[in-house]
Write a protein that binds this DNA or RNA. Sequence first.
RNA 1: GGACACGUGGCCCAGCUGGAUAAGGCGGUGGCCUCCUAAGCCACAGAUCGCGGGUUCGAAUCCUGCCGUGUCCGCCA
Length: 570
Amino acid sequence: MYILRELILEPLQKALFDIGIDGNSWEKMLGPSREKSQGDLSLPCFAFAKQLGKSPNEIAEILSSSISGEFGVSSNGGYLNFAADPFWLANKVLFGDVERSNKSVLIEHTSANPNGPFHVGRARNAILGDTLVRLNRLHGNDVRAEYYVDDMGKQVGVLAWALSNLSEEQVNKILDIQEGLSGKWSNKKDHIIVRYYQAAQILRKDSLDSNIEEEIGKLVHASEHGDDEVLKKFEEAYKPVLEGMLETLLRLGITFDTFTKESKFVVDGTVSSLMEDFESLEIHGVAENGAHFLDLGKRGLKGKTEFYYRRGDGSSLYATRDVAYHMWKWKQSDNLINILGEDHKLQSRQVSLTLNEFGYNTPEVMFYAFIKLPEGKMSTRKGHVVFMDDLLEEAHAQAASVVKNLRTDLSQEEIDFIAEAVGVSAVRYNIIKVSPDKGFTFRWEEALSFEGESAPFIMYSHTRACSISKRVSRSVGNFEIGEIHKSIYELFRAMAAFHDKLDLSVSENKPHIFALYLLELATAYNAFYRDCHVTRDGQVNEFYYAISEKAREMLRDGMNGIGVIPLESM
RNA sequence: GGACACGUGGCCCAGCUGGAUAAGGCGGUGGCCUCCUAAGCCACAGAUCGCGGGUUCGAAUCCUGCCGUGUCCGCCA
């Protein structure tokens, strides 16, 4: 609780000084109480024992009796505990103001190759990234959400080749499908076009016809040299796919401010001039066939230390363009955050070390582990894949059936509206509630869980507050802070943590911290709802109403911060 | 083989800039709707924090060895 910390720091320092503890090395030991029942902040006194020749117990006792202020102090088992005064806390929570951050931040996320629909694994990036965007905005930062479009190189090359060389019939035959794409997504462009890509991949692998590889190679080569016509052809190929992908993201509430094409840096010449600059570096080297690299082993990289940035034929590589891209990004914003899969760790390190070499800073990176399926790795080819579009449909359907059971008063249209919000929120929440560096196995029953640690749990608390708001249907009147019931005190403590958790979540790039916090806030609200009725026999308790309204706003803001939709009724 | 992650009750997961009896959820058992939406609430049961060493007044947390899982080690993206 940061507000409490500010309050006690001075008296605590004085008390410590009086017993012979100088300096402020103890400040980092002052942390949140492990035991909630003991207080909000605790100072373990074990470290002072030797210096003072007293037991930690004694020290804590002495300190507790010498400190006083608008807070509770106590000692227990060698710990000095501080608890927020209920009345003080009520004032802070109901009337306090918080300082907001206002940094400029550029967050690059998703940036998926535009060659096919999102499966849940690929979508983890987009959901984590968008949540970080939202949390930064909630925190007050000026955020730009950016998608780096991979519009050149092999993947798009294969796609473009397939679209201009394969017919619908050929694709179906190669993929061994009789009647072509059927079902729900037969009109969605990413699902349609990915089949051409898949067919081409099979041809490349199985066919003895080496012309295919040669033709694709020519296209890729041309794109890497900035050939206008080829790049245009590539764009025609990937654009509809990307549109289909963005449609899925839009359904998840994910949008971008800017799209930057990889080819930009080839076409405008920055990549080739950058490659010339590389040659002046001390760690620069040239391989036998004329390929160029930097020896990053000299900068602490372990394992394979050569970072190749230029092929023997003089063309650039993906990572080279990524360096150029990052130099450009540093001109757009003072703070860069990238969201990347753990498979990009080495590549990201190479880019960062190279940037450092030119005097640029290292961007912040949030790495996330992959989502597996019970049957193993996600693989489109083996049919081990869960498309985000399918997951969202299923989530909607399940939510609709729950709503239908619970609410017989609603029209089909209202049911659909609620089901969509619940479905999307639940899907997002199940991905962001776990730490990004934890790989997890996708299970339908968990992804579609609407109780316990889930988005609907939080949404439900919020609708309760909305329901009260609707019932009273006016703003909060004059009130005095009344008796502070245990549940109210706990709710205040939870509310006071809002900005602490938001700040932590944003500064550490860990969305799950704030996502899990909202669960605590909702739980605390539920206890308040149970114990303290705002309206009773037609009378409104203004103090309670003020608390409920404040909590409602916090829940709403917090939910928006993680992309969970704050419905007013469900 | 090397590098980097991860390993916490039957299952999922928080805690890991060292601090008090390891926090939640699912599942299990038992209870709560004449009272602002029961997608809720309450109670109970359930943990050698992968294994072995070390550092420390104190280790789930730091160091080290081993085991297991994942990712990477392309002049691919």
